[in-house]
Design a protein around this nucleic acid. Sequence first.
DNA 1: ATCACGCGGGG
DNA 2: GTGTACGCGTGAT
Length: 609
Amino acid sequence: MEKREIILFDVDYVTYNEKPVIRLFGKEKEKNNKKTIMALDFDFQPYIYVIANDIEIAKKEIYELDIKSIEIVNKKDFQVESQFLKVTFYHPQDVPKFRDEIRKFRSVNDIKEYDIPFYRRYLINNNIFPMSMIELNGEIESSFLNIENSDNLEIFKLNSPPQPLESDNIDFKILSFDLEVRNPDGMPNSKRDEIIILGISTNTGINKVISTKTEDLDFVEKVDSEEEIIKSFIKTVKENDIDIIVGYNSDNFDFPYLRDRAKIHGIDIDLGWEGSKLNFLNRGYSKAAGFKGLIHIDLYLLMRRYISLNRYTLERVYFELFNEEKIDVPGDKIWEYWDNEGEELKNLLHYALDDVISTLKIAKMTLPLVLELTRIVGQLFFDITRMATGQQAEWYLVRKAYEYNEVVPNKPGGGQVSSREKNVGGYVKEPEKGLHENIVQFDFRSLYPSIIISKNISPDVLLKKLSNGKYVKNIVSKQIKDENPNSDNFNIAPSYNHKFAKKPIGFIPSVIGNILNERIKIKKRIKNSKDETEKKALDVQQQALKRLANTMYGIYGFSRFRWYSFECAESITAWGRNYIQNTIKKAEEYGFKTIYADTDGFYAKYIDK
DNA sequence: ATCACGCGGGG
DNA sequence: GTGTACGCGTGAT
């Protein structure tokens, strides 16, 4: 039996003898060892939970289908101890195949956890986190599915599930790249317009542009053709053992363009592990470019979530983060600069270099926070960078639900949610015009998370009557049964009178409480630490936790989320308005006059009487 | 007002 | 891949 400690980069599954095999990709931490490890887990099966109105009949009916096994398990459903049928399938693709059929059985009330991607389920159930260290126990295999064990790749068969390990600082090798195209006739067309420059910058010290023209600039690598540009790019990425490749709008421009131009020359963009090629995943209406084992991050997508701007050009984002103008050549002038040569060409080459250096700088500044979110949320780095913050919070909650032995709520169906529902939101007092002096500022620290915790706002403790007069199924309805609820035991929201039981503590308040406690612990560690690098790393961690806590309110307010609850969302804002308005009132009693207020804070001036 | 639509980024 | 964006401004009705 062999043991390996790796940084987990990627997870997927393949089908082998009609069965799913989980593949974990990682690298050992030692810098001199570039070997990639591909660990195979043959012992993980997909499953769903079934709520039966008659367990015996349901068991019989489901057993008629081509499934692996059924067992009765106890899980909590909004904190109510319940019996579920856990139905295990042979293959992940059996789940969409059979789930609707199972749902339709008359013996079945509902099904749960039928839409959780297999590789995500694996990460959650094994308590392992991407971009962190894990321990593997198993044996070395000589080959698997036409892939040979080699100097670069070790194939490892797991004897037991992977174990999470404490991971300290891990340095990743990052490369930014950018294409320039000669497009005299409108927007670049990959059938027609060739790549003239490809810029590369790495955090290991490479800064260059590959081009078919040079003006004797030392950062230019002169090659003979577009084909050579692409080949040199591929070579540079491979030779430098890059972990993360970043671009700006590279999902939608650079990689698709590169793919098209490479195809013309018969070149494969085979930058993934063991020569695996560039592929494009559908993401909503757009595509995401990725490799197996080389993580591609599109910073454009990320910046749209990271900062709030009216435009997201590379120049605008760079200025926002570094307060520096960067060189700019207008897109429709690039071909002229290229054709005119001399000073203009020099400028263009400098611009190309500046683009990749700026892109790398943005990556170095922003990726640490996303890496922390990856380690906290526990989904792939690639996925985290392409998720809305609400989705990040949701996947965090899915993981926590597993930890709490709670069954995950289903996504609300289309008809279930009327789009008319609109939450009022925070209290806003329009600013008073003029130049004000003697201003004081007041704001609540994490107002919404605090309200969720202090008022125990959670769907599992909400007292809610359905149109048929019955209470919604959760721990509270179970407690009160048919007795008249005693209002002393509830927090009652202003304006709407939604009632939240004071006990037990709700799932989401409990999770947020843990996040905030964890954050306090980290802040204490920052205070006690003397190591500046450690302080910085911990600070990014506490920021990530703060972000996550602040996002939890959104989880209630958006109808596509699993924990959607309009009552919870409007109760939070109602209490929020209450708090800020009461505080303003108090301040005014002491002689302050409010100039402007928004949601969780206000400005006022003191009027001396 | 309300709705449907299409754009963003990239060269 | 057990998933299928999203929020805003514009012009039409």
